[in-house]
Amino acid sequence: MKRSKDDAYETIVTLVSVARKHFTEYGYAQSSLEEIAAEAKLTRGALYHHFGSKKGLFQAVLESVQAEIGQHVEAEASKSDDVWEQLILGCRAFVSAAVEPQIRQILLIDGPAVLGWEAWRRMDEENSMRHLREQLELMQRQEYLKPVPLDAVTHFLSGALNESALWIAQSQDVGQSLEETMSVITLFLKGFN
């Protein structure tokens, strides 16, 4: 029994890894389940058994991307003991990760289009926005943040970060656009200090 669970886990990890590569390179619409299964050295049946559909596989890939971003944001934010700097570092880490080619297509372009806006937002709330809200709540409890409605600030800032990532990704100078974005975000956040 344990071996079959291990085999199933390995199959899932392989399919998600190969599918992520395809979804990044070709986008959701142009990715072929046959090619993903062939590259993974598995059958389409195995793919359907574990994910049910191309959309189910894409959702698993998006979930892994969001988990990866969450870990990256936490790691970057934890480089400081100062709660304001943690917030800024976390925002920078999110935007920097989101504009990476292996993430941008899946997270920002195909994610909302494939899963639908509501499903994508729910996943975003469970991952990035949850961490953002926790940081803002901690800052408010410690009186580093003015008493403002946390849900409103969280959604506002999350939307700004997502839109900024889309803008930066299309920019001719990603580095400069990232610095300009972080300057604006920092200025905005100082208004709540």
Rank of each mutant, 00 (worst) to 15 (best):
A97R: 00
E179M: 14
H131R: 07
A37V: 00
E100Q: 13
S171D: 05
L178P: 04
R121S: 09
V83I: 10
D124W: 04
Y9C: 12
L136C: 10
Q71K: 11
D173N: 09
A97H: 02
V61D: 00
A8Q: 04
L107W: 07
P149R: 03
W167M: 15
Q102L: 12
L107M: 11
V73N: 02
A40Q: 04
F58T: 00
R92E: 15
G56R: 12
Q105A: 12
M182L: 12
G191P: 05
A38G: 08
L57N: 09
Q172Y: 14
P112Y: 07
I109K: 02
T154H: 01
S128G: 02
V13F: 05
L62Q: 01
S32C: 12
L187M: 12
M123R: 07
S32F: 05
R122T: 14
R44D: 15
I109W: 03
L15I: 06
A29H: 05
E134G: 05
L145F: 06
L108D: 10
V95T: 09
I12K: 02
V95I: 14
W117D: 12
S96T: 12
M1W: 07
D81L: 03
L157P: 05
A19G: 06
S158D: 07
R44K: 13
M139Q: 04
K79M: 11
L107R: 01
S53G: 11
G27A: 10
W84G: 03
V95W: 00
Y48D: 12
K146H: 13
P149L: 09
P112I: 15
K5S: 15
I69P: 00
R130M: 14
Y48N: 13
H131K: 06
N193I: 15
F94H: 07
T43P: 08
K190V: 06
T154D: 01
V18T: 10
E180H: 03
L107D: 05
Y48R: 12
P112F: 07
V65E: 01
K41P: 07
L136H: 06
E74V: 15
K190S: 12
L187D: 08
W117M: 13
R92Q: 13
S128C: 11
A8V: 03
E163V: 15
L157G: 05
R3T: 10
